[in-house]
Design a protein around this nucleic acid. Sequence first.
DNA 1: TCTATCATCGAACACTTGTTCGAAGTCCTC
DNA 2: GAGGACTTCGAACAAGTGTTCGATGATAGA
Lengths: 221, 221
Amino acid sequence: MPNEPQSKYDQKLVHVLKTSAAIFAEKGYHSTSIRDIARATKMSLSGLYYYFKGKEELLFLIQDYCFSTVIDDCHKLLEGVDDPVRRLKLLIENHLYYFVHNMNEMKVLSHEANSISGDLYKKVNSKKRQYVDLVMSLLEEIARANRVTGLDLKVATFSLFGMMNWIYNWYNPRKDVDVAGLSQNITRIFLSGLLGDKRIEAERLETGREAQLERKVSIWQ
Amino acid sequence: MPNEPQSKYDQKLVHVLKTSAAIFAEKGYHSTSIRDIARATKMSLSGLYYYFKGKEELLFLIQDYCFSTVIDDCHKLLEGVDDPVRRLKLLIENHLYYFVHNMNEMKVLSHEANSISGDLYKKVNSKKRQYVDLVMSLLEEIARANRVTGLDLKVATFSLFGMMNWIYNWYNPRKDVDVAGLSQNITRIFLSGLLGDKRIEAERLETGREAQLERKVSIWQ
DNA sequence: TCTATCATCGAACACTTGTTCGAAGTCCTC
DNA sequence: GAGGACTTCGAACAAGTGTTCGATGATAGA
C-alpha cells in the first residue's frame, strides 16, 4: 500500500477496509454479509467488488496490512537495541499499542485467523510464524542469560501471546487502564514470571486431590 | 443432564453434542451447517431437531454443559482449602485439565462466546462472570497478603485467562508438554509474576523511543 | 469534443441456509 | 396384537448468500 499522496482509489479502499474491519469485529466474519458492508459504506453490492476479488480477499487485506504494520514498526523499534530484556519490553509495548489503537483490526487478525484459507492463509501465517519465532528466540536468550531452568519456552511464548491477544475479549479503553498501564502490568507479570521465583518452580502441584475427587476426563462422562 | 443410568435419549444427545462440538471446533460455528452435523452423526436433517430447538440451542447446550462441569468440579476441588495461593493453583490446574481433555468443547466455549445471543447468551455469561469474580477475588486476597502494590488486578485476572484460554490456538497434546507440565509452567509464570520482582515493577518503559519513531496511532495512517 | 480508462450500479443467478410438517417407523405396555 | 408414546425421516419452503455481467456515469488527457 502506497504512502504519501494516497490516490482517491487508495483512500476509498482504506475506508472500505476500516468499515469492514469494524463490522467483522462486531458480528464476526462469517455472519457479516457483503450487503452489510455495502450498507455501511453506502456503496452498492457490486460496486464493492471493484476493490477486492472476493470476501476472503477482503479479510486478507485487513489482516495482512494490519499485521505487516505491527511487525514493521516492531523491527524499527527494536533496531539498535541489544539487551534482550529491553527488546522484549519494546515488543510487548508495540504489540499492545497497536492492539489498543486498532482494536477492530487486531481482533479480526486474532479471532478470524482460521476464517481464511489457501494461499491467503499461508501468507498471513508465514508472517505470524516469523513473529512467534522472534519472541521465542528472545525468550531463549533471556532464559539463558538469567539461568532460568525448567521452563518450557513454547508455553512461555504462547502464554505471552495469550495475555496480549486476549485483551479484545475484555479490555475497554474508556474504563480500564490506559495503554501504558496495560503494557506495564503485562510486562511486569510476564517478565518477573519468566525470571521469577524458584520457590514456585520447585513446588509440586497436589495431583493427589485429583484422584481423590475421581474427576472425569471427558466432561461427557 | 442426568447421571447414572443414561437413557437412550441422553446417550444420543451427548453423541450429537460431542460430534457437533468437534465440527464447530474445526470449522467454526457459523460455517457449520446442520447438514454437516447430520452427515457426521448419520442422522437425518429433521431428525436432529428432535434433540434441540435450533442451531443456537445446540451451541448453548455444548457451552453450558461444558462450562458447568468445569465450575462444579472447581468448587469441589477448592472445598476445604483455605490458602488462596493453593486455591488459585488448584483452579488453574482444574481449568487446564478440562481444557486439554475437552479441547473441542472448550474451544467452542472460548471462541464462540459471541456466537450466541439473547437469553442463552445471558445464561452462559452470568456463569462466566461468577467464575471471573472468583479468580479476581482470589488475586485480591493474594495481593493483599503479600503486599503486592501497583498491579491492576483486572489486568492480572484476564492475563491469566488469556494464558489459559489461548491454548486452543497452539497446544498440541501429542507434541507439547503434558497437562501437568502445562499447568506447572503457566502457574509458575503467572504466580511468580504476580508476587514477583519489584525491580521490574519500578522500571519505566522507554516511551521516548515511541515519539522518536513517530509511530502511527491508526495503522491506516 | 472525442475517447479511453476508471468507477459505479441494478438485476439477476445459482446455491446454501435453518427450519417446518406430516407421515411413517419403532418400541414398550397392557 | 392393539394402542400410544417415542423417535426418525423425506420433501419442501422462504430467506439469505457470494458473485457475475452488461450497461451506465464520471473523469481527464488528446
